[in-house]
Amino acid sequence: MSEQLTPTKTYYSVFAALVALTLLTVGVSFFELGNWHTTVGILIGVVKASLVALFFMHLLHSSKLSWLAALAGLFWLVILMGLTLSDYLTRQVLDF
């Protein structure tokens, strides 16, 4: 964590991008997208979250350990969601 300071300009541009993406995601919700609203919203959210993590949380310049912790959290989240849904998405036979 001892590398040189990130210039504040970077923070301001990331912030501008985040605000723009927020306006975009809210704007998109006024269009007729059928079932795709959540998907689009999540995708934009992933971009925003990555920006926050990489720049504001300094993940870009962090040690491998911080990456390890962050990716482990995400990986286990995928396990939790994926295997739980493996039940719910294959249930139709006896489901109500």
Partner: peptide, 17 residues
Amino acid sequence: FLVWAHHMFVAGQSVYS
């Protein structure tokens, strides 16, 4: 972490799961 639902084989989860 990948095996938890073996506690639920007769609990009404899907046959495939």
